[in-house]
Design a binder for these strands. Sequence first.
DNA 1: TGCTAAACGGAACACTGTCCCGTATCGTCG
DNA 2: CGACGATACGGGACAGTGTTCCGTTTAGCA
Lengths: 185, 185
Amino acid sequence: MPRADAQRNVEALVTAAKTEFAEHGVDANVRAIAARAGVGTATLYRHFPQRSDLIAAVFRHEIDACAAAAPALSADNEPDQALELWLQRYTEFVATKHGLAVSLHSGDPAYSALPAYFSERLGPMLADLLAAAEDAGAIRAGMDPIDLLGTVSNLCIPPPGTDDPGRAHRMVGLLLDGLRYRATR
Amino acid sequence: MPRADAQRNVEALVTAAKTEFAEHGVDANVRAIAARAGVGTATLYRHFPQRSDLIAAVFRHEIDACAAAAPALSADNEPDQALELWLQRYTEFVATKHGLAVSLHSGDPAYSALPAYFSERLGPMLADLLAAAEDAGAIRAGMDPIDLLGTVSNLCIPPPGTDDPGRAHRMVGLLLDGLRYRATR
DNA sequence: TGCTAAACGGAACACTGTCCCGTATCGTCG
DNA sequence: CGACGATACGGGACAGTGTTCCGTTTAGCA
């Protein structure tokens, strides 16, 4: 079992990181996060060796909630509708985290574990939604869920100079219409 | 008129930058570019104060060629086909430049002039292509060309861990199918 | 209460983009 | 052809950042 002060520090770091992420994006300054948590930088690195570890810790609850939403939406909606609602929910989650989408695609080793974490947690959920919509003939077959996850987070990266909060949602909707085009039904 | 040695240095810098960009992406190391060109770093900054200036200089010919392709494709193809061919050409250009798409969306001030440069040069071309396809009833109306340019370059950012060279093209095709879905015709 | 291992913190390091200033060179004019 | 002034150069200095090291502190237990 870890020492009590260590546990306190982990909590303080996650809380501080959440605030800093909200204000300055997920590539917030290391010293700023540590200072806000009232610890040294080494303590941060000891508990979260990679930036992706810290990001995963900060957003784990939200990611879990997103994953949990999939079966719920499937139960309450037609497959096509469930797919759209879930994709828009995922879009909302990613698009509202400054810099998260860019980091996911940055290629920086410090973030390299993140895409895998997202894929592992959310990929199976999306796979089920896609399969159901395919079976219903609402969308074309053959769309890879991991590919789609990555593409949706692509669309969450805003072009600089514009702050149109609905842009990502519109583009995801457009992409989904692409899947509907030439569906079997 | 500028001094002869200054002109030589500008040429050497653009050549060196092209090589470094190809090997290490458009955020290649400043000292490496300068060293390859055989000049000091200050000389690089004197001629290209912002990274975006250097990128624009390196890729100007390619961007111009891309712009020039639009009317040519329009002349030789149906509007819908011309739009698709041009979008795929633009995709090919962006996707083959390591890190260019990420930089376009990074928000870093050093790159902030780039999106405007792209939009200014290519926006009108795409606007014409879109208008023609709309008039032919091949796609839905109301798509903003600048939005679409930004979105296509979004799709050119590869998710880490995968090196599927056709991914960007497939996703752009899918997005275009979205525009075709519920077209007036 | 004292001991040991776990955990800490801040300084030190390495690397990067950016800027400054003394120096060298180009192009012109006498 | 030689000297002068403006232009341009180069390498070092600076500032900011992520990352690591090591001497010091503290929690938990006997």
